[in-house]
Amino acid sequence: MIERYAAFTDSPSGGNPAGVVLDASGLTDADMLRIAADLGYSETAFVTERAGERYRVRYFSPLTEIPFCGHATVATAVALGPGEHRFVTNVGEVPVIVDTTGVATLTSVPPAVAELPAADLAALLTTLGWSAEDLDPELPPRVAYAGAFHPVIAAGSRKRLAELDYDVPALKALMTDRDWTTVQLVFRAGPDSFDVRNPFPIGGVYEDPATGAAAAALGGYLRELGLVPDDATLGLRQGDDLGRPSRITVRLVPGEPGVRVSGRAVPIPAE
């Protein structure tokens, strides 16, 4: 049975839609990829094994398997119901707590941040149609990881972020070659507030309306570069430019290696 949820929203018309299959024990890789492609959402989560509150979870986009997906994790956890769940993913174990109000909080695997080579930055800006003058000098380009790799590129203005119009084949080829899952484009609207957009051509989707894995990676990036306090709560706005508003909360806890990412998920009614 395929369930449909919208994650990081309290409305089925907002957030990022995700497919959820709570019993995929009898499905092959080809089956899961076909289901994800037929559904057409950016990701579908498949629970392939269960032992108590530990679940083996895999994520498929319409084109390929994805190592980790935050919004489908939130959707799956909410579908399972309130309580503490532990997801065994391709990148490690991810604990998720769902409260009685339908808010799920995942804690990512420990993040990592690396330099973005100058040649890669130049190629990325070319595919986006951006120039170096479009960037925010206070948030330097990096590649961040919290279960998947995402270049973090900060726009100097909200207008630049809004005018997203990239070269799909060129960006897809670059991301495939570099093993990037999405590109995390951000605009810092305030000390703890960010507008974000995430091109996702390798998954067969022009843009993700909400990207929990990239949100976790951004939290790790901001902490690593000392751009936010060690104890910080950040609000991310995503999907507004697509007409699917999404709200993601990122929490950094001193002494905790992972990054907490929280949001709601609601069922999408059958058509």
Rank of each mutant, 00 (worst) to 15 (best):
D179Q: 10
T249F: 12
V103S: 04
L39D: 05
E138Q: 13
E43R: 12
V103N: 02
G204A: 14
A148E: 01
A118I: 01
T233H: 13
I202C: 15
Q238V: 11
A122D: 14
F46Y: 04
T182R: 07
G243C: 13
R58A: 01
F200Q: 09
P229L: 08
R50K: 05
A18Q: 02
L252M: 08
A232I: 03
P257T: 06
V143I: 05
V96G: 14
G147R: 06
D120L: 14
D167E: 12
R178C: 15
E49F: 04
V113Q: 07
I35G: 10
T64H: 06
T107L: 14
L121S: 00
T73C: 09
A232G: 05
T73M: 07
G26L: 08
R142I: 04
Y55S: 04
G190Q: 02
Q184K: 03
G239R: 07
G26P: 02
T181K: 11
L22Y: 10
I97K: 11
T176L: 15
D134G: 06
V20D: 05
A215E: 05
L22G: 06
D38K: 14
P254D: 07
D23T: 01
A155F: 01
P254E: 09
I66C: 03
P229A: 13
A119E: 13
A104D: 11
A215G: 12
V168T: 13
D120H: 12
T48M: 03
T48Y: 03
E256S: 15
Y59L: 06
A114S: 02
